[in-house]
Simulated assay, not measured.
Amino acid sequence: MPAALPASSTLGRRLRAARLAKGWTQAQLGQRLLEPDDPDSSTAAPRISRYERGMHKPDLATIEKLAKLLDLPAAYFVASSDVVAEAILVISELSPRKQREALALLKRLASKAAK
């Protein structure tokens, strides 16, 4: 009987969802992640697969590259909860002025909750 696959990590689930939202395969995302002169393109799809399955965690520089490729904030991938991750996505879609307003509102909500 084959060994069970590891449970996907939160980062892996978010990465997979973002990749699929772009309509890309693991190989396509992996190719975009590699440096243009990288001779070892055969590791592209397996690398993304390992990240998505939680077998390996990408370093911060790689997370930042992935985020840029997927047009998402890097913080989304490392957020501590799904609610915080979703808030990051929503806020990142706003204009800078609206981001400041959203932050002020969140601060007001937090101060009321502390009382």
Results as ranks from 00 to 15, higher is better:
Arg13Thr: 01
Pro58Asn: 01
Pro73Trp: 00
Pro46Trp: 00
Ala75Thr: 07
Ala18Thr: 10
Ala67Tyr: 02
Leu72Cys: 13
Gly54Ala: 07
Ser111Lys: 15
Pro58Asp: 02
Ala110Ile: 03
Leu89Thr: 02
Val83Trp: 02
Asp37His: 14
Arg47Thr: 09
Asp38Pro: 14
Leu11Cys: 05
Lys112Met: 12
Ala3Thr: 09
Lys22Tyr: 00
Ile48His: 07
Pro58Thr: 02
Arg47Asp: 04
Ile63Trp: 03
Asp82Met: 00
Leu15Ala: 08
Leu11Ser: 06
Leu5Trp: 02
Ala67Pro: 13
Arg53Asp: 05
Thr10Asp: 12
Arg47Gln: 14
Lys115Asn: 14
Val84Tyr: 06
Leu89Trp: 00
Gly30Thr: 05
Arg32Ile: 03
Pro73Arg: 03
Pro6Cys: 01
Glu86Gln: 15
Ser95Leu: 09
Ser8Met: 08
Ala74Lys: 11
Thr10Glu: 12
Ala67Thr: 08
Ile63Arg: 14
Arg97Gln: 10
Ile63Val: 12
Ala75Phe: 01
Phe77Asn: 07
Lys65Phe: 00
Gln26Ala: 12
Val84Thr: 11
Phe77Trp: 06
Lys68Asp: 02
Arg97Ser: 08
Pro36His: 05
Leu34Gln: 13
Met55Val: 06
Pro96Tyr: 04
Arg16Ala: 08
Leu106Met: 12
Leu89Phe: 01
Glu93Tyr: 11
Ala27Pro: 12
Ser92Thr: 02
Leu89Met: 09
Leu109Gly: 11
Leu70Lys: 08
Gly23Gln: 07
Asp38Ser: 10
Phe77Gln: 06
Lys107Asp: 04
Ser92Ile: 04
Val84Ser: 10
Glu52Gln: 12
Leu20Ser: 09
Tyr51Arg: 05
Arg47Cys: 06
Arg100Thr: 04
Ser95His: 12
Leu103Asn: 07
Thr25Gly: 09
Glu101His: 15
Glu86Thr: 00
Thr43Ile: 08
Arg97Met: 04
Glu101Ala: 13
Leu60Cys: 11
Ser8His: 13
Lys115Pro: 15
Pro39Ile: 00
Arg108Ala: 10
Gln28Met: 07
Asp71Gly: 12
Ser111Pro: 14
Arg100His: 07
Ser49Thr: 11
Ser8Ala: 11
Glu52Thr: 09
Lys98Ile: 00
Leu94Glu: 13
